[in-house]
Design a protein around this nucleic acid. Structure first.
Lengths: 225, 225
DNA sequence: TCTTCATTTTGAACATGTTCAATAAGCGTG
DNA sequence: CACGCTTATTGAACATGTTCAAAATGAAGA
């Protein structure tokens, strides 16, 4: 939001330096204990400068996420190219993200700290829509070309639902205290398989009374498109 | 946590006065903008006093929730007594809670602000276990005596799952901007019906491959009991 | 009543995210 | 170069949740 298109070379340098310093401090000391004064000092700059480039401490985390998106995009594209089934693709995409974020779990936890959709930094806010849409696009791609035959009333919402699934999984992962987060791994594996089972069963006429209201619900919540 | 059993009459008075003042200020100005200085002033007391009785600003909200639990308990018992089916009971219990909290939505949003299970005020923390368990007990009661025949691998976890469902619903409700929160009402109605459908179908052998892994998953996440 | 100790109350001090007026640095133009 | 204008940078000041040493209050016993 703060950085303009007319950013000169040097300005961009400073911005990068501040962000890098912030991430370093966050990693070393944890997001919450890290102070803006520390970060500024680490970047060799006054506190005000940090606020000139970033709206808030949280905004630094958002910048981190945006950067992560850029860096991960090619790898995710690659994964989509190399796999065919939806299950493989989801496993690949979500697994890749978890792996990427693994060294920065405390930072991700800061990201998920705001659920309030009014808060500019919430994953559900209008302000983060571009980032969110970019994320959802990968799930759109993953769903496309897959052989899955879903009821028309559900199909269009699947990418957004999968994104939500991913968010929930990451939330669990962020606070997963088990060794190497193996509980998340287990949750991921089992729920993914169950989801695939459920999607297959969606065709059965027997389950119509279960999936028809689901479609109506989705339409009401997400809107027509 | 702070209030001891040895609380004398006057001390208890002060505590109540501070809590009441806090709730009034929260209601009038919203949780976030309200300051501890305001609250203290409204209670006719120094800031320090507020902290003598409550660990933090958030703790005031927790005290509010505990009080709400006390006040709602008889009504919830009544609802359980007057209804038989699980659907009726859930509709009654959850509906009652939403109605009760309606005048204080901003306060409830403060309650759901901490997802981190390490945070003492998170609904998932060890510190809030007593409050949580008391809540879950109502769902246990609601499930008991209902004619539902569920696989043994799932049955024991049902109350906790229903509690989770309720939490999710309240989260949606807290940020529901629609008139009279009618979107939440719709979500509640539809998901409740779907849940009942799904639970009935759980008996079908056809759906075994879907429900068996679900049972295993629950065991792994929640533990044996 | 006086002493002693625990309980309660006070308000100044502290930490930290954030703002902002002032200053410096760049840069294009005459 | 000199002058203005935009962009960067500074650091003191502010707001607010929280802490804490000191003071006030109260209760119980000698």
């Amino acid at each position: 939001m703060t950085a303009e298109a007319s950013s000169t070379r040097k300005s961009e340098e400073t911005r990068k330096r501040i962000l890098a310093a912030a991430l370093a401090v966050f990693r070393e000391r944890g997001f919450h204990v890290a102070t803006m004064r520390e970060i500024a000092a680490a970047a060799g700059v006054a506190v005000g400068a940090a606020y000139y480039y970033f709206d808030s401490k949280d905004a630094l985390v958002m910048a981190f996420y945006a950067q992560a998106q850029d860096e991960m995009a090619p790898q995710l594209d690659q994964i989509l190219k190399e796999s065919r089934t939806l299950e493989q693709r989801l496993r690949g995409i979500i697994g890749q993200k978890l792996a990427y974020f693994a060294p920065n779990r405390s930072l991700v936890s800061a990201l998920t700290a705001h659920i309030d959709p009014e808060h500019p930094l919430s994953p559900f806010s209008a302000a983060t829509a571009p980032i969110r849409d970019r994320d959802i696009a990968f799930f759109e791609h993953a769903v496309k070309e897959s052989k899955l035959r879903l009821p028309n009333s559900i199909q269009p919402y699947l990418p957004r639902l999968l994104w939500l699934y991913q968010m929930g999984l990451m939330l669990f992962w962020v606070y997963d205290r088990s060794l190497r987060q193996e509980r998340t791994e287990m949750l991921f594996d089992k729920t993914l398989k169950m989801m695939m089972q459920a999607l297959k069963l969606a065709e059965l006429p027997l389950l119509k009374p279960l999936f028809r209201p689901a479609g109506e619900l989705l339409k009401a919540i997400y809107g027509e498109a």
